[in-house]
Design a protein around this nucleic acid. Sequence first.
DNA 1: ATGGCCATCGCGGATGGA
Length: 265
Amino acid sequence: MQLATWNVNSLAVRLPQVLDWLAAHPQTSVLALQETKLTDDKFPQQAFADAGWHTAVFGQKTYNGVALISRQPLRDVVRNIPGMDCDMARVISATVDAPNGQPLRIVGAYMPNGQAPGTDKFAYKMRWLTALRDWLQGELQKTPQLVLMGDFNITFDDADVWDPVGLHETIHCTTEERAHLQNLVGLGLIDSVRLFPQPEKNYSWWDYRNMAFRRNRGLRIDHILVSAAVQPLVHACQIDKLPRKNERPSDHAPVVLTLQQPGRA
DNA sequence: ATGGCCATCGCGGATGGA
């Protein structure tokens, strides 16, 4: 089974690309979408249902919006971070069955951008990340097999940055943001991309400007983190750059995780 | 090069993204 995350930067624009991608990746079990930018009544649920997919959605007008697209029915769907006062649609979680038959909690998240260090939006991003960590701590107690995937808007370190000198301590690259990311690692969550050899300069987002994709001037800010209980099932994880070459692409590429029961081909 | 792009809302140009 495969799990994937993709910030589509408007599902209204990218729906055909998402359906094409799903058709080309039939092993997909759950795809987490971010920045759908659609209220739930406008979500193209029928288009996914016609292609054999279950959906769980949490959207709003114009901004944000997250969804889970799943082959299996999605159980115990929860929207946002319970208990956090947040008027934005940024988190959706649900449970499916893992290849070992145990429940697997999937958390799809769109972390705040944060604009720039020192701004109100940056302070909000820090508060939001603290609330996420506190909530996930309890979630991991309830369901040890947990995957947190989405657009984190944070790089782990300079290996995730095309120009670490020019972008030193700028948004997505600050020490403070990276400390929050390490707090999630401290819960036992593992960056699954780094479990495997990867191409040099392995990014998930490229600016639309300056021919950044062609020059591979990007950042790795979309991540799939797996709990320790999931790690034995992890078989591969890679960034799929192909959709970034589409006509009218999202600025983000999907990240894909392959889970397998150990010992199975 | 002090920037270049894209989506939304809505019909011009501001706002947000990253």
